[in-house]
């Protein structure tokens, strides 16, 4: 499944994360999962939320640079070797995985992948 992920540029300053969560809370938006990539000067907060378009609008209003990126969500089997097997399937079919993290759901964990061509990769995974 392709999901809309929210990406927010955030400076390494005290309280910036809290400013973001405040906006989301006030807008009634639920955070499903998040991942934070950081450098020494800034971070990139990636979020899967209940309403990505509304979240984008509200965060922009609050002055954050924010974009929506398509990411691939793959349901994970909770067993030893699942991730390895999936990566083997993908080998040769994608240029690279830019980043990945997981999303917990009621039906078990889901792996979120950022790849250059999410729909093609989705096909590859389905066909095997």
């Amino acid at each position: 499944m392709i999901l809309k992920q929210l990406s927010v540029f955030v400076e390494n300053k005290e309280g910036r994360m809290k400013d973001i969560t405040q906006v989301l809370k006030d807008s009634g938006i639920n955070i499903k999962t998040l991942s934070l990539a950081d450098t020494t000067e800034y971070g990139m907060l990636r979020l899967i939320v209940s309403d990505p378009d509304l979240a984008k609008a509200k965060l922009r209003e609050a002055g954050f640079p924010v974009s929506i990126t398509d990411v691939l969500a793959v349901k994970a089997d909770d067993r030893i070797g699942f991730l390895h097997d999936m990566l083997c399937k993908l080998e040769g079919n994608i240029s690279s995985i830019e980043y990945m993290y997981t999303l917990p759901t009621e039906e078990g964990p889901v792996v979120i992948l950022k790849v250059a061509n999410p729909s093609e990769v989705e096909q590859v995974l389905e066909n095997i």
Partner: peptide, 15 residues
């Protein structure tokens, strides 16, 4: 200041 029009969510692009 980063410009939203050219904003990438990949750290390597920002770098």
């Amino acid at each position: 200041e980063v410009d939203e029009k050219f904003f990438s969510d990949e750290i390597k692009e920002l770098e």
